[in-house]
Amino acid sequence: MAEHFDCHYCKVSLLGKKYILRDNNQYCVKCYENLYSNTCEDCRTPIGSDCKDLSYKDHHWHEQCFKCAKCSRSLVEKPFAAKDENLLCTECYSNEYSSKCFTCKKTIMPGSRKMEYRGNSWHETCFACKRCRQPMGTKPFIPKETDSYCVPCYEKQFALHCSFCKKAITTGGVTYHDQPWHKECFLCTGCKMQLAGQRFTSKDDFPYCLDCFSNLYAKKCAACAKAIAGLGGSKYISFEDRQWHNDCFNCKKCAISLVGRGFLTNRDDVLCPECGRDV
């Protein structure tokens, strides 16, 4: 009995012919390619069994068709990148899509380290201090216009120095008598409370919070002995080197207010005219 060895699909005899096995079934070359060959993304023809089938993300190419979409150089065994379903060699991809260094204007190659700040990019070695030219890497820096400086160089070249501690002021600060101060150094001369953002006054060019100034220098009310600040529009009465709060300027005997009225004095007391007649 003659042995049958036929194509699993078209049943043509495969005796003495080239065939291909798939899932334990044998196929003639023509049937195998019609049934199972992938179509090349470039030339749109089947990739035959006698050709290399190169694939990337479910797409397939003949070996000779696996090339850069822009410069047509072969990408076989070479690094490449994909953009909008096109394959590009690293050089074409970089020229077309990679960031350009803000300093040297050259392409920042894919995979290389880069620094980014305010929408611009730099090679790691190009992101350097404008003054000392040392790469800043991940160290803190201070921008000025279009340039950047490491902190020591910025302090040497631009920063104001605090009138109190003499150290550089890199952020914020307070100006008092045309002199710069750190916020944390601008303190009340009396209690040492920070004055930045607070109401304050001065005496002999020294700053004071309102409480300290009132306690130390403000006039004292002859009636209640408390300070008359005289700040923020406070009103007071003055008579013969003595002062009273408006609310304290009252008749010693009947306590009627004497503001805007005539009055008499009896030693250290002030009296309304009526009570003064009885003295």
Results as ranks from 00 to 15, higher is better:
88 L>T: 01
79 P>Y: 09
48 G>L: 15
68 C>G: 11
81 A>D: 02
71 C>P: 05
47 I>E: 08
50 D>A: 14
39 T>N: 11
63 E>G: 01
61 W>I: 04
64 Q>C: 06
34 N>D: 14
42 D>V: 00
62 H>F: 11
55 S>Y: 07
83 K>D: 09
52 K>T: 11
44 R>Q: 13
61 W>P: 04
64 Q>P: 00
72 S>A: 13
69 A>R: 00
67 K>M: 03
75 L>R: 02
66 F>E: 07
62 H>T: 09
88 L>F: 14
58 D>M: 09
61 W>H: 06
36 Y>C: 05
41 E>K: 05
75 L>D: 04
66 F>A: 06
49 S>P: 04
79 P>D: 08
67 K>W: 00
88 L>C: 05
37 S>K: 06
36 Y>N: 08
58 D>Y: 07
66 F>N: 04
38 N>K: 14
79 P>M: 04
88 L>Q: 02
81 A>Y: 02
48 G>I: 09
54 L>R: 01
37 S>Y: 04
78 K>D: 03
65 C>A: 08
51 C>F: 13
69 A>W: 01
40 C>Q: 07
82 A>S: 14
64 Q>M: 09
52 K>N: 12
39 T>H: 07
44 R>P: 00
37 S>Q: 06
47 I>R: 08
59 H>A: 13
66 F>R: 01
56 Y>G: 01
56 Y>R: 10
76 V>G: 01
40 C>E: 07
73 R>P: 00
67 K>T: 04
34 N>Y: 08
35 L>S: 10
82 A>R: 04
86 N>I: 03
54 L>A: 01
38 N>R: 11
37 S>A: 15
40 C>A: 09
84 D>F: 05
56 Y>D: 14
81 A>W: 00
54 L>I: 15
42 D>L: 07
66 F>S: 07
39 T>V: 15
68 C>A: 12
50 D>S: 14
39 T>C: 08
87 L>R: 00
66 F>G: 05
82 A>C: 11
65 C>E: 03
52 K>L: 12
61 W>D: 03
69 A>S: 15
75 L>T: 02
74 S>M: 03
35 L>Y: 06
67 K>R: 13
46 P>V: 12
84 D>E: 14
71 C>K: 04
84 D>W: 01
56 Y>F: 15
84 D>I: 02
40 C>Y: 04
55 S>I: 00
35 L>K: 11
